[in-house]
C-alpha cells in the first residue's frame, strides 16, 4: 500500500476509533500502569497521587513479600479452594441434570427453561438477601425444612464451619441454570446417529451415557469447569453481602480482601499487590481455557 493511501486510511479510521481508543487509554491502559506503580509503594490513598508521593513511598517488592509471607493469604486461598471443592461437583451435577431434562422433547419445556434461568438473571445483591433470609437459623425455611426430616440445622452464616458451604449453596442455586443451558447446547450438538447405532448394538441407557454422552460432552464440561474456576477466584458480592468475610474471617476471599484493604484500610499499595497476585492466578487459568477453546472449536467443525 502506498504511503498516501495509508495516511488516508488512518485519517478515515480516527473518528471511528476515537471513543473506544480514548476509553482504552483512560480506563484500561493508564490504570494498569498506575496499578503496577502503586503496588510497589506504601501509598495510603489519601495523599494526592503523583510521581512524588509514589516515589517517596517506594518499597519495591515489600508488599508482595508481605502478602506471600503472611498466613492470611494462604488462609484466603484455602477458603477459595474449599469453595471450589464443594461448588464444582455440585454445580456440574445440577447443570448436567438440567441440560438432560431440557434436552427432552416434552410439552411445556419452555416454561421450565425460563424458570431455571431466573436465578441467573437476578442480581447478586437480591439473591444474597433472599438467601440470607432462607438461611436464617431460626426463621429461615431451610432449617424449617430440615426440621421436618428430623435434622436440626446449623447456624449457617453465623457458624464458622457452615458459612462457606452456605455460600456455595447459594452460588450453585444461582449458577446452575447458566451452566445447564451451556451444556444443553453441547448435548444438542451430539449427532443422534451415535445413539441409534448404540441401540442397534443393544447398548443400555447407562452404557450410552458413559460411552457416548460423557466423552462427547467433555470439551464443554472442561470449558465450564475453567469458567467456574475463574469465577471462583473472583468471588465477591455474595460474600460481601451475606457475611462480609465473617464469621471470624471464615469466608474471607481474594476480592473481598482487595476491597477491604483498599477501601476500608486505605492500604492501596498492599491491595494493588494483592490484585496482581489475583491476576497471575486468573492468567494461568485463562491460558488453559484458551488452549481448550481452540480444541473445542476444532472439535465441532
Amino acid at each position: 500500500m502506498s504511503k498516501k493511501r495509508q495516511k488516508r486510511a488512518l485519517k478515515n479510521a480516527i473518528p471511528f476509533m476515537l471513543p473506544s481508543f480514548l476509553g482504552m487509554i483512560v480506563f484500561s491502559f493508564l490504570p494498569i500502569i498506575i496499578s503496577i506503580a502503586i503496588s510497589f509503594t506504601n501509598w495510603n490513598g489519601l495523599d494526592k497521587l503523583s510521581y512524588k508521593t509514589l516515589a517517596s513511598n517506594f518499597v519495591f517488592l515489600d508488599n508482595y513479600k508481605q502478602i506471600l509471607g503472611t498466613s492470611e493469604f494462604w488462609k484466603v486461598l484455602g477458603h477459595t479452594c474449599y469453595y471450589i471443592v464443594l461448588y464444582i461437583p455440585m454445580v456440574l451435577i445440577m447443570s448436567l441434570l438440567i441440560a438432560s431434562i431440557l434436552n427432552k422433547n416434552m410439552k411445556g419445556i419452555t416454561v421450565f427453561r425460563i424458570m431455571y434461568y431466573i436465578p441467573v438473571l437476578t442480581s447478586w445483591v437480591a439473591a444474597s438477601l433472599i438467601w440470607k433470609w432462607v438461611l436464617s437459623p431460626q426463621y429461615g425455611i431451610l432449617n424449617q425444612l430440615l426440621g421436618y426430616i428430623g435434622i436440626s440445622g446449623p447456624g449457617w452464616l453465623t457458624d464458622k464451619v457452615w458459612a462457606m458451604p452456605a455460600i456455595v449453596l447459594a452460588s450453585v442455586w444461582k449458577d446452575m441454570g447458566f451452566y445447564g443451558l451451556f451444556l444443553l447446547s453441547g448435548l444438542k450438538a451430539i449427532d443422534t446417529g451415535y445413539y441409534e447405532a448404540a441401540i442397534v448394538d443393544g447398548a443400555g441407557k447407562m452404557k450410552q451415557f458413559f460411552s457416548i454422552t460423557l466423552p462427547l460432552l467433555s470439551p464443554s464440561m472442561f470449558f465450564c469447569i475453567i469458567m467456574a474456576l475463574i469465577n471462583a477466584f473472583q468471588l465477591f458480592p455474595q460474600v460481601q453481602i451475606m457475611t462480609e468475610g465473617g464469621p471470624n474471617g471464615a469466608t474471607q476471599v481474594m476480592v473481598e480482601r482487595i476491597y477491604t484493604y483498599g477501601f476500608k484500610y486505605f492500604k492501596m499499595g498492599y491491595a494493588s499487590a494483592y490484585s496482581w497476585l489475583l491476576f497471575v492466578i486468573i492468567f494461568i487459568l485463562t491460558l488453559i481455557q484458551m488452549k481448550l477453546q481452540n480444541k473445542w472449536v476444532h472439535y465441532e467443525s
Binding site: 480506563f27 484500561s28 493508564l30 490504570p31 494498569i32 498506575i34 496499578s35 502503586i38 490513598g45 473472583q234 481474594m254 476480592v255 482487595i258 483498599g262 492501596m268 491491595a271 494493588s272 490484585s275 496482581w276 489475583l278 491476576f279 486468573i282
Partner: peptide
C-alpha cells in the same frame, strides 16, 4: 481482571 484496574 477488573479488580486490578479498580483502585487506580
Amino acid at each position: 481482571p477488573t479488580q486490578v484496574t479498580m483502585i487506580p
